[in-house]
Design a binder for these strands. Structure first.
Lengths: 340, 340
DNA sequence: GTGAAAGCGCTAACAG
DNA sequence: CTGTTAGCGCTTTCAC
């Protein structure tokens, strides 16, 4: 095992002290250009890489953030939401030269065991929480430990945590309004989990659209699909007897289940029932028929979460950062618009 | 900011030296039970957590491994393969108390920039490579740096890297043999990427089954779908004129594209064409119709990869570890068996 | 501008 | 069994 390169050695080779090399490595000011060049050359030649642990110990920064995802979310495996989110997060991490560690909480038990690793400043600089139950105790623990963190999706009203979210309410509102404009009058909805802000907000948008457009909210036309394809399939079956002429589904993944149910029941989309989803997953452009949906910038949200977290780490937790990103209605076949 | 707890402080509180506390924290032998209890109590009370960087610096272990995924893999977003793999990996990491960092390589460029972070012992203890091009230069670099690593999927023959794989060849063989037994004679295949071992091996299994069963290999019946739903859809369209009576599709994700193409062409499955996939994704049980497929233990593979990597880290790189996991034929509707 | 020196918190010999 | 000691490789004052 060849001896590890250290600042000391590089310094020797370049004829300067360890401290100077450190300055060069960190782009610190106060080094003569000529010297900087010389040191850089040696680093280049030798392929020197700083030892991250040593750096962390001395500087008290880990250059490590963690993304925590609760796996109660069964949709994790069926829904490309998370892969895209993860992609956004890693991309921004790469750009900022920090590394991302991923925690998936498989059970209460594991959650408990992982707490220290996620809460402790000696492990990570900050935490991103995705799709968390709005009242999850982890949130409180993080606050209490003064660990910088940011949520994807809104936390409880009372909390003054930082978050980034998509305007779910407005997206749902746009979807349902669009349906109303098509002349639909019995618009049903299959909702997402109601313990997550996105699920709640999409339902709220649905209701507001109905009310503002002079339609009444019929509880028979509201079924919970929990962001799950199979549950949405069953939910659609339950909805059928109530004869909706349209259904707003709180996620594309669930919308696939709805289309499947409708196909099997021999009900034509969009002629007999119009369907609008939420997410605009890539496969929604080629579903059968192609799905009208609300596009949300998942990847960008992941990337921005990192940027915001870094800002919090560097500038302090207060004031809380809050960002809400807009959505966009993507009209395809399932809403019937293109038939008119 | 309250002062950081250190071994020193805990020691003081418990009336022992820093070293003893360290022993207790690390479950090292050679501490009297009574003392151990006492120290443990203080740790419990204070909520002391070791500083990971300090520990790493002193012990030269990072307790960090990285999972590297090339994003050339577009299927990343449509195919639940990766989420499941990641799940297996994180689960095993959690059990072993190490953290997993995820790298997704979005571009050549980024790959280059990330090399140091992945190759350098100062950053991670080891690396898991998923779905890599079999000749990717990263493999050679890792070997050359003596960085412990393990591939998911087989590397080039010449390489003596450690790997874990699924018996793709045997799985494909089983799928096609099953089709032959149903009396199919014009069995087509839509293959995966041929620069990845799983893609190659599944094609090889297809060919062997045909040959061993006395059928000839017709190049017209072989189309590359690159593990992509849309390409598979197009591939199926291309296949239609050659009138296959069955098609073995190298992944479930692609099989969905095939079913879509067939549905649109008004060709009934399985009556006119039988379809068999590969993966057994959760949604394959509820596809339309439910998909006959080859199940592979994706999550387990991820978990085992971690265990093997840890073994390599602890015991040394030689000899290479190699594991090949079996697959299983899952018979559902699309192969026609259940109609007989 | 540059170097010397003092830690960061921990592990791992080595003594006792 | 337990304590003492010497680093691990780096950042960061503080002198010069």
């Amino acid at each position: 095992m060849t001896e590890r390169l250290t600042l000391e050695i590089i310094g020797e080779l370049a004829g300067v002290s360890r401290a100077t090399v450190s300055r060069v490595v960190n782009d610190s000011p106060g080094v003569r250009d000529e010297v900087r060049e010389r040191v850089l050359a040696v680093i280049q030649e030798t392929g020197y890489q700083p030892h991250s642990a040593a750096r962390s110990l001395a500087s008290n920064r880990m250059d490590l953030i963690s993304l925590v995802i609760p796996t109660s979310t069964q949709s994790l495996f069926t829904d490309p939401y998370f892969p895209r989110l993860i992609q956004g997060v890693t991309q921004s991490c790469n750009e900022n030269n920090i590394t991302m560690s991923l925690f998936m909480l498989h059970s209460e038990d594991e959650e408990e065991r992982l707490y220290p690793r996620v809460l402790n400043r000696g492990y990570v600089d900050g935490v991103i929480l995705a799709s968390f139950d709005r009242a999850d105790p982890l949130v409180a623990r993080l606050e209490q430990n003064k660990m910088p963190f940011i949520m994807i999706g809104r936390p409880e009203e009372s909390s003054n945590a930082s978050y980034i979210d998509v305007n779910n309410e407005a997206g749902a509102y746009a979807a349902v309004t669009h349906l109303v404009r098509q002349g639909k009058t019995r618009i049903a909805t299959i909702t997402g989990r109601q313990d997550i802000s996105s699920g709640k907000d999409r339902l709220a948008g649905y209701k507001r659209a109905l009310i503002e457009r002079g339609l009444s909210v019929d509880e028979n036309l509201i079924v919970n699909g929990r962001f799950n394809e199979l549950e949405a399939y069953n939910a659609m079956l339950k909805l059928l007897p109530h004869q909706p002429d349209a259904v707003f589904v709180a996620s594309d993944g669930m919308a696939y289940g709805v289309l499947r149910a409708l196909r099997q029941a021999n009900i034509s989309v969009p002629d007999e029932i119009a369907v609008v989803g939420f997410d605009d997953l890539p496969s929604s452009a080629t579903s059968d028929p192609p799905l009208t949906t609300i596009r949300q910038p998942i990847r960008r949200m992941g990337a921005m979460a990192v940027d915001m977290l870094l800002d919090i780490i560097n500038e302090g937790i207060d004031p809380p950062r809050r960002v809400v990103l807009p959505t966009e209605l993507i009209v395809r076949q399932t809403c019937g618009t293109l038939n008119l």
